[in-house]
Design a protein around this nucleic acid. Structure first.
Length: 883
RNA sequence: AGGACCGUAGCUCAGGGGGAGAGCACUUGCUUGACACGCAAGGGGUCAGGAGUUCAAAUCUCCUCGGUCCUACCA
């Protein structure tokens, strides 16, 4: 497989396809519960089966994959469970739309045939998203893929439902819930989205039945007056004290309803008198229960007025009814005023229809006791949330939690395991479908299904086989970390916490990592309707998976949203290509058989320096990934590869690789191979494909699958911080020559000479040792360093540290240009020197600041003084020459 | 109403008590033996504003202004 030539540019398409099938065949992600090593496990946030991959998924998958791949490198036993969610309402809507196109409907098909149809749909489209997960390079365990409607997971759902019912934590009752008249189903509070709407505030006249006065009430929904069963005022409101206990005549209807007193009423709002419609308003419902008011429904499930609304209004839609009611009131002189009023209106999160509060028999989970435990688990640190700021949000939601409505009047989902006896009316909740009631009566199963999030809440343990006692459950629960975006913190994370703690007696995950939301370049949330979606697959086809993954990683700073644009991904493709070309160059200079030179003892500066920096990168990269600082890992590797490895090390190594010194050449090959190999392993979790492709061409590796290569061990003998200081002096000398060349417009082709005068023995030794290197990097004809180097008359000069750098110029020197150049550098350096000097002059600083800070400042002071002095001297020299 | 986050180079953003950074864009010069998806050298900042804590503040605290988002309520 080893091959020393690579194509000139990196072409991701073939490479990715090749390694995807390689990893699929080798079962790269397959976990072994009995293997050695500390377990590390993640369950994927299951995307909707019928959905397609969006950028949020792409980021989510990238983060999880980096963690999993890195943990494998560290020798952990890793399980990453993939899967999908049945997304009840959303999926049912999609299939219903398809049916509508065919001129059919679910009612025409009937329940069983419809469900059959959804399964077919799932079979056809459910594979799409899984394939997209594959394309992202996600190293999940495909042998353990799950779907929320699988047999095993359905069993878990039923077990949980029955147990919660037996424990009194699930109950059924007639309550007011959010109802979507279009989807024809109940919605949980969370599934209602509020958006501000322009509306009107109507003031209506309610006349006392005994004719002794009138009350003006304010309302935004005049049509609901048909269902009013009281008028409420604040008990301490003097304006209305006399009215309490009396009856008023309901306008248009004529029914007499009581005036009640309740502290809920806000005296400041409107007129301070509130019409009470228990059947059609959440707060009125509570009010009605407190005062034993009749619950009068005047609307049906489709949002149309029913018989109870009266003959004049029956059959009208809620919108039409409002118009007619207002007209009728106006006619009768009962409409006092109409003013504009902005308020927020609840909409169905799936279809955006205005939600109608609706009283109906529903199933609820008593959330309080579960929430308390879920809160405590985070408080005591059993589960940690990253970034930490989200814990406040998590607490706040749990502290104000209301019972969770879990029944949905749709067909696609887990059917509620409850039966009512047609004979005696007994309610049976059971694990196994019962045949008949004890009384012998026939049973009818509850037609409703469960909220999709009910099954999602069990995901961390249901996917591992619960309620059976499986090896997976034993080895991998609790999972290590949950990776998700904040928008499902309540929907999903909090509920998994509740269920996991209740049924497993242990948190579902040790950590929760909340990552960014991916937005468009303007910071708007990407959505199909706005048309600002960037399709990850199109980006993958265009720039490659690695470029996309690296982009997302580099921008994935904790607690921040990502503004993504195509140009950015394109930019990181250049980085992938840079790596490719660095490898290409390396391979051109590496033999098939590694020389096997040991890299110890005193090494030439550039080798010692890059090996030291590599040690730092190894330490920093792993630490950053384990702390969820993915952007730091990516940015560190980016600048190491580009600005250090490519710009300096490879250039420096050219002097060895193309030279005649065979020993130096062999040593350089060994060092280059070592750094490149380990760098590939470091980059692999972020960019699996390109690193694998290069790896497969590199000689000397028995393990051809880079995903199986352990993280490189630390080499303490290569930690040499002095090498960094020496290398930066070398760089400073080289840069100063390049600067002279550039600013004095000297052709790059022209070889210059360079002389350095230095009083420092260590600097001198280094400069002399690296003559060949400096000559190459600065494109010199000759290089001389010494303690008493004299400056040729016609020469440009610069300061490198406290050393003088001279570049003799063949022709006439432009003294003015040279002076300007030196002055610029002097001004910059003098400014820095002054800041440091001022600091050191401050006695408080030298007395109170930590010793190492003061020492560092003194060192800096010395260096800057030296440089300033040198620049002044050089400047003086030019001035003398000029005159 | 309550809460969270953000304001740093033209743009997008890192950093988070001790030398103001990156990418892109910009200027200049380059067929330098992997790379023009490139190389080299540059220009560019009141770290939103104000006050405080500190020997030292872009960084911590408070206030003001501007922006984003979440939760709740809105008869």
């Amino acid at each position: 497989m080893s091959d020393t030539t690579l194509a000139k540019g990196y072409e991701p398409v073939d490479v990715e396809a090749r390694w995807l099938s390689f990893w699929a065949e080798s079962g790269a992600g397959t976990a072994d519960p009995d293997a050695d090593g500390d377990p590390f496990s993640i369950v994927i946030p299951p995307p909707n089966v019928t959905g397609t991959l969006h950028m949020g998924h792409a980021l989510n998958l990238t983060v999880q994959d980096i963690l999993c791949r890195h943990m494998r490198q560290l020798g952990r036993k890793v399980l990453w469970v993939p899967g999908t969610d049945h997304a009840g309402i959303a999926t049912q809507n999609v299939v219903e739309r398809a049916l509508a196109k065919e001129g059919s409907s679910r009612h025409e098909l009937g329940r069983e045939a419809f469900i059959e149809r959804v399964w077919e749909w799932r079979k056809e489209y459910g594979g799409k998203i899984l394939n997209q997960i594959r394309r992202m390079g996600a190293s999940v365990d495909w042998t353990r893929e799950r779907f929320t409607m699988d047999e095993g997971l359905s069993k878990a759902v039923r077990e949980v439902f029955v147990r919660l019912y037996e424990e009194g934590l699930i109950y059924k009752g007639d309550y007011i819930i959010n109802w979507c008249p279009r989807c024809q189903t109940a919605l949980a509070d969370l599934e209602v989205e509020h958006s501000p709407k322009k509306g009107a505030l109507y003031q209506l006249r309610y006349v006392l039945a005994d004719g002794s006065g009138e009350l003006i009430v304010a309302t935004t929904r005049p049509e609901t007056l048909l269902g009013d069963t009281a008028v409420a005022v604040h008990p301490e409101d003097e304006r209305y004290a006399a009215f309490v206990g009396k009856m008023v005549k309901l306008p248009l209807v004529g029914r007499e309803i009581p005036v009640i007193a309740d502290a809920y009423v806000d005296r400041e709002f409107g007129t301070g008198a509130l019409k009470v419609t228990p059947a059609h308003d959440m707060n009125d419902f509570d009010l009605g229960r407190r005062h034993n008011l009749e619950i009068l429904q005047v609307m049906d499930g489709e949002g149309n007025m029913n018989a109870a609304a009266g003959a004049a209004y029956q059959g009208l839609s809620r919108e039409a009814c409002r118009k007619k009611v207002v007209e009728d009131l106006k006619e009768q002189g009962l409409l006092v005023s109409v003013e504009e009023h902005d308020h927020s209106v609840g909409e169905c999160y799936r279809c955006k229809t205005v939600v109608e509060p609706h009283v109906s028999p529903q199933w609820f989970v008593k959330a309080g006791p579960l929430a308390e435990v879920a809160r405590a688990a985070v408080e005591t640190g059993r589960t940690q949330i990253y970034p930490e700021q989200w814990t406040t949000t998590y607490y706040h939601w749990l502290d104000n939690i209301r019972d969770w409505c879990i029944s949905r009047q749709i067909w696609w989902g887990h059917r509620i395991p409850a039966w009512t006896c047609q004979a005696c009316g007994k309610l049976i909740v059971a694990r196994q479908d019962p045949a008949a009631c004890d009384c012998g009566g026939a049973l009818q199963q509850d037609p409703d299904v469960l909220d999709t999030w009910f099954s999602s809440a069990l995901w961390p343990f249901s996917t591992l086989g619960w309620p059976d006692k499986t090896p997976e459950l034993k080895a991998f629960y609790p999972t290590s970390v949950l990776v998700t975006a904040f928008d499902i913190l309540f929907f999903w994370v909090a509920r998994m916490m509740m269920m996991g703690l209740h049924f497993m007696d242990e948190v579902p995950f040790r950590h929760v990592y909340i990552h960014a939301l991916v937005r468009d370049a303007e910071g708007k949330k990407m959505s199909k309707s706005t048309g600002n979606v960037i399709d990850p697959l199109i980006m993958i086809d265009k720039f490659g998976t690695d470029a996309l993954r690296f982009t997302l990683t580099a921008f994935a700073a904790m607690g921040r949203d990502i503004k993504l644009s195509e140009e950015r991904i394109e930019g990181y493709r250049h980085f992938v290509n840079k790596l490719w070309n660095a490898a290409r160059f390396s391979l051109m200079n590496l033999p098939q058989e590694l020389p096997g030179v040991p890299l110890d003892g005193e090494l030439p500066l550039h080798h010692a320096w890059i090996l030291h920096r590599l040690e730092e990168m190894k330490q920093a990269t792993s630490a950053a990934i384990q702390d969820y600082r993915f952007n730091e890992a990516a940015q560190g590797l980016y600048s190491f590869l580009w600005l250090e490895f490519c710009d300096w090390y490879l250039e420096a190594a050219k002097s060895d690789l193309s030279g005649e010194d065979e020993a130096a050449k062999a040593q350089a090959q060994q060092c280059l191979w070592t750094v490149l190999s380990e760098l590939l392993v470091l980059l692999h979790p972020i960019m699996p494909f390109v690193t694998q492709e290069i790896w497969s061409h590199l000689p000397g590796h028995a393990q051809k699958d880079i995903s199986k290569v352990p993280y490189p061990a630390a080499r303490p003998q290569h930690v040499k911080p002095q090498a960094v200081a020496m290398m930066s002096l070398l760089q400073e000398v080289v840069v100063s020559v390049r600067n002279i060349r550039s600013e004095l417009s000297i052709s790059p082709a022209l070889k210059l000479d360079c002389l350095v005068r230095t009083a420092d023995p260590a600097d001198l030794a280094m400069l002399r040792d690296n003559e060949r290197l400096i000559t190459l990097l600065a494109r010199l004809g000759s290089f001389t360093a010494g303690p008493d180097v004299t400056a040729p008359k016609a020469s440009a000069s610069a300061a490198a540290g406290g050393n003088a750098v001279f570049v003799p110029l063949a022709g006439a020197v432009d003294f003015d240009a040279e002076l300007a150049r030196l002055n610029k550098e002097l001004a910059k350096t003098a400014k820095e020197a002054e800041i440091v000097a001022r600091k050191l002059a401050n006695e408080d600083f030298t007395a109170k600041a930590p010793a190492e800070v003061v020492a560092k400042e003194r060192e800096k002071d010395e260096m800057l003084r030296g440089k300033v002095a040198k620049l002044e001297e050089l400047k003086g020299r030019i001035e003398t020459l000029k005159s």
